[in-house]
Simulated scan of single mutants.
Amino acid sequence: MTTEQAAPQGAPDVTTNADNTQLWVERTGVRRYTGRNSRGAEVLIGSVGDEASFSPGELLKIALAGCSGLASDSALRHRLGDDVDVTIHVSGMADDEQDRYPALLEELVVDLSALDAAARDRLLTVVHRSIEQHCTVGRTLEAGATVQLTVTGER
């Protein structure tokens, strides 16, 4: 049985995002979805433990780490070169009672041995500031966001 609900007055247009990229997921099997964007990218979404797919919680964590990487990339490249190796590990355990992640931990791994102490401290300050100011995912998680679901018939 399908429940249909009209979009509330003033509801946001969920077909596009700020850069006009469309995002959607399609069911591809039992507890299996494929996330897609209008630029042709896709990601497999499934339950924890499903082979060759990300769980939604893993995607949330990957989005945070990727956003931090993109936000800090310019500063890291500027001071360490265009070929700088950067890895960002991200983790966080779900609180099953609240069905949420109460804390997420990131570790940005980059070789800073070529910098003296003062240059290292300056770079770390710039990296932290860049992430705090420009990582939309982190800023959204810290501030919280409203979520609105509308169930409709086929488009």
Rank of each mutant, 00 (worst) to 15 (best):
A114T: 15
C67I: 10
P56I: 01
L105W: 15
L141Y: 05
L124H: 12
G153F: 12
A118E: 12
M93L: 03
L149D: 05
L80Y: 05
V84G: 06
S53I: 15
I45G: 00
S91Y: 08
T3Y: 03
D96V: 14
A118G: 06
T3A: 01
D73P: 12
N37E: 11
E51C: 07
D73N: 14
S72Q: 09
Q22R: 14
D96Q: 07
E58M: 10
D50K: 04
L115F: 13
H89T: 13
A52F: 03
H89W: 15
D111G: 03
R139G: 04
Q98P: 06
D116N: 15
A52E: 07
A75N: 12
G69P: 14
L70D: 04
S130V: 07
R100W: 14
R32T: 07
T140D: 01
V90F: 06
S53P: 14
G10Q: 03
V84P: 09
A118T: 15
Y101P: 13
T16R: 03
T16I: 09
S130R: 03
T87L: 01
Y101M: 09
V127Y: 00
S74M: 11
Q9V: 08
V151A: 03
D73L: 15
R27K: 06
L112G: 01
T3H: 08
H128I: 01
D13W: 01
T136Q: 05
R120S: 00
T34H: 06
V110P: 04
T3I: 05
V127Q: 04
